[in-house]
């Protein structure tokens, strides 16, 4: 079960942010923001390799005392970040990977919505619930 998920745009501005506990949002913002550095690093090194078979999943970005942060970058440089409680041993790499894939497809749906202006923060009840479902693993 992830505790926080974020979608960060091309310009590194937060497009969507959801936490299981809404009171902790600011707390997580700080963590996610700091993990962007690592994403950038990973991207910088990653681009040197073959661009064709690019792996979107970035793996674990940060492992803090209480949380683990995972990252994922789409081809259009949209970043997905998931924060997981470090005590959680059920979620392994594969689960995180599939979580990201689900988020990606949800995000693709949102972007396909003609009423969504790309680059704007995502405000959608539907999306939030489906993200929460992905986070809690009920999907």
């Amino acid at each position: 079960m992830a505790v926080c998920a974020a979608i960060i745009g091309k310009d590194n501005s937060s497009k969507f942010f959801v936490t299981l506990n809404p009171d902790e949002e600011l707390h997580f913002q700080y963590k996610v923001l700091s993990s962007l550095d690592i994403i950038e690093d990973k991207l910088a090194t990653g681009t040197k390799g073959g661009a064709d078979t690019k792996e979107l999943y970035l793996g674990m970005l940060l492992s803090l005392e209480t949380y683990k942060i995972y990252g994922y970058v789409t081809n259009t440089k949209i970043k997905f970040v998931i924060v997981v409680d470090s005590t959680n041993v059920v979620l392994r790499d594969n689960e995180i990977r599939s979580m990201f894939r689900k988020i990606h497809s949800e995000f693709a749906d949102i972007v396909s919505n003609p009423f969504y202006i790309p680059g704007e923060p995502i405000i959608s009840k539907n999306f939030t619930t489906s993200m929460k479902n992905i986070m809690t693993g009920t999907v």
């Binding site: 310009d11 501005s13 497009k15 942010f17 913002q29 700080y30 923001l33 923060p121």
Partner: peptide, 10 residues
């Protein structure tokens, strides 16, 4: 400004 990082902008 307007990036959505509330904590930072606060």
């Amino acid at each position: 400004e307007n990036t959505g990082w509330d904590l930072a902008s606060d």
